[in-house]
Design a protein around this nucleic acid. Structure first.
Length: 268
DNA sequence: CAACCTGTTCGCCA
DNA sequence: ATGGCGAACAGGTT
């Protein structure tokens, strides 16, 4: 489910636990969720610490526990973070529950495409600090996007936008939204995108990231009907541009359902 | 029962 | 050696 803004929404769910102690944890040890972590270490080390910091980067989240522990979460397709009362009974897909005096913090993921990592150290782990710049960061420059497209001349732009190494936080609906806004066909190859349009792409990825964070990332409000978002899944959905209203196309592109307007977004 | 899914990663092939 | 592609992962929902 979650991309940039949804991740930010879920991250904040745990905020009520910041500054509070970890009394005990429940950890179901799912080998898949903990494929990059050592669950026994988490069981042993997390209780007795204090939850201090919370941060998101693209689709990743990092939570800091005093004195020196870092818990990272990725939500995959169906993951979510929830808060419940201190007596919460773990459900089938609650892979981690952190019990605090007044709340329990829950990581739930039915489909198990998500993951939990655990690191020890005074500073955040290097894999975290070395993540590529997010669209909302000033380092996400026009030159960076242009150079990225040049490195992937044969890939279609829809696939490139989903690459977290290039566009951290962008997922399926955001990719379609951006391409629709700049009128670029999703099957356009990297080499066929002129510099001017690469600049436009960078500007719009950045703008949509800010907009999505402020609308969905705060309280999961619905985006306005002027976005493609509200039309893309509807059978019979039409392009929301007032002067267009052309029926939208929904097709599989490199394994992902892709929605675009055949009139506004012309194939090259 | 079959198809679908807002994500990532692996192995194969050019 | 890389880049690009399809398949696989797992389980709920339509």
């Amino acid at each position: 489910m979650p991309e940039l803004a949804e991740v930010e929404f879920y991250r904040k769910q745990w905020d009520c636990g910041i500054g509070k102690a970890v009394d005990r944890i429940h950890l179901n040890g799912s080998a898949r969720i903990y494929r990059d972590a050592n669950p026994r270490k988490i069981r042993k080390m997390l209780p007795g610490t204090t939850f201090r910091t919370s941060e998101a980067h693209g689709k990743q989240m990092l939570f800091g526990f005093e004195p020196n522990l870092w818990l990272a979460a990725h939500l995959g397709m169906t993951g979510k973070l929830l808060v419940a009362g201190p007596e919460h009974q773990p459900e089938k897909h609650d892979h981690l529950v952190i019990y605090q005096p007044d709340h329990s913090l829950i990581f739930r993921d039915s489909r198990k495409f998500g993951r939990i990592r655990f690191d020890q150290g005074k500073a955040p782990p290097s894999w975290w600090t070395e993540l590529p710049p997010q669209p909302i960061s000033p380092e996400f420059s026009r030159d960076r996007v242009t150079a990225y497209l040049a490195r992937h001349p044969k890939s279609v732009i829809k696939a490139l936008l989903l690459d977290q190494g290039g566009f951290p936080g962008i997922g399926n609906w955001m990719a379609d939204e951006v391409l629709w806004r700049i009128r670029l066909h999703p099957a356009t190859r990297g080499r066929d995108i002129p510099r001017s349009q690469a600049h436009l792409l960078r500007d719009e990825v950045r703008k949509l990231s800010f907009e999505a964070l402020s609308i969905i990332g705060t309280d999961w409000s619905d985006p306005p009907d002027s976005w493609l978002f509200n039309h893309r899944w509807k059978d019979g959905g039409v392009c929301p541009r007032p002067t267009c209203k052309t029926p939208l196309i929904r097709e599989d592109l490199r394994g992902r359902t892709t929605c675009w307007c055949p009139k506004c977004q012309i194939a090259t």
